[in-house]
């Protein structure tokens, strides 16, 4: 009986979708422009090509959502946790274990950064699932490059702190030339190492940006082709939920990996 009702509602939904969808004309000319609106405030051109206002709104919205959720979960903390508190404790515990597995005891210092990167990026990627026409903030290079720069400075700061400034600078001259047991800094490889560090920053931020923007554009194009009938649900499940979560996890794991590579 229950199954019949579910199937009947699915079929009714599909028929309704087809009826609506036939009237929608596929329009793909505005896909590129819609995702690159730069705005100026009060007629003044802003530096760096202006600020992307929708991205700012959605970013602040996601941050407010996270803060409110955290306040709700931690409102009355008990020894025997309630449901929301248990979810948060499991989340924190999992990331704590991950960081201490990768970096040892000092890795726990990076747990807040890695965990908040994950939760922020994950929720930013899932914003596209809300059917309000919002854009994911992570499909804007400004957001991802900002996050990448944070990870860049954190990893280099940690390297200077844990290795000392001398060892940090000498590491740019790896691999050392060894003559009769004496190690001489290798000047030839220095530019390559510097470019490699900058390349890490670029690949870190462009990976997230490209994945999310590419997924969003594929979703828009295919949804237009099938006139928003049935297929966008599966597309949203894959490109929205799965790829969003995986890319958020990959971004935070790579931040941790870059720290561990530089620190050791």
């Amino acid at each position: 009986m229950k199954k019949k009702i579910i199937w009947a509602s699915v079929i009714a939904f599909l028929i309704l979708e087809i009826l609506i969808g036939i009237n929608i004309k596929p329009d793909m000319s505005s896909i590129g422009e819609a995702r690159h609106k730069f705005h100026s405030i009060a007629g003044h051109e802003l530096p760096f090509g202006g600020i992307n206002v929708p991205t700012m709104y959605v970013t602040w919205g996601v941050m407010a959502f996270i803060i409110i959720l955290a306040l709700l979960a931690m409102r009355n903390v008990k020894l025997v946790p309630g449901r929301l508190q248990l979810v948060f404790e499991m989340f924190v515990g999992a990331f704590d274990k991950l960081c201490s597995d990768t970096l040892g005891e000092r890795g726990r210092k990076f747990m807040p950064l890695v965990a908040s990167l994950f939760i922020f990026i994950c929720l930013c990627n899932w914003v596209g699932l809300i059917p309000l026409g919002w854009e994911e903030p992570t499909s804007d290079l400004n957001t991802t490059l900002g996050l990448g720069i944070i990870c860049f400075f954190v990893s280099h700061g940690a390297a200077i702190r844990y290795k000392g400034i001398k060892k940090y600078i000498l590491d740019y001259f790896e691999p050392m030339i060894e003559i009769k047991g004496v190690k001489i800094p290798n000047v030839v490889f220095m530019p390559l190492n510097v470019v490699g560090e900058i390349g890490k920053l670029i690949s870190h931020s462009f990976r997230l940006y490209g994945n999310i923007l590419g997924g969003a554009i594929i979703m828009q194009v295919v949804s237009n082709l099938v006139r928003y009938i049935a297929l966008p649900v599966g597309l949203n499940l894959f490109f929205g939920l799965f790829v969003g979560a995986v890319q958020a996890f990959v971004f935070s794991m790579l931040a941790l990996t870059y720290v561990s590579v530089l620190v050791e």
């Binding site: 995986v246 890319q247 990959v250 794991m253």
Partner: peptide
């Protein structure tokens, strides 16, 4: 595997 794939995907 996921982290390695993400790196080779870049």
């Amino acid at each position: 595997m996921l982290v390695g794939q993400a790196v080779s995907e870049s």
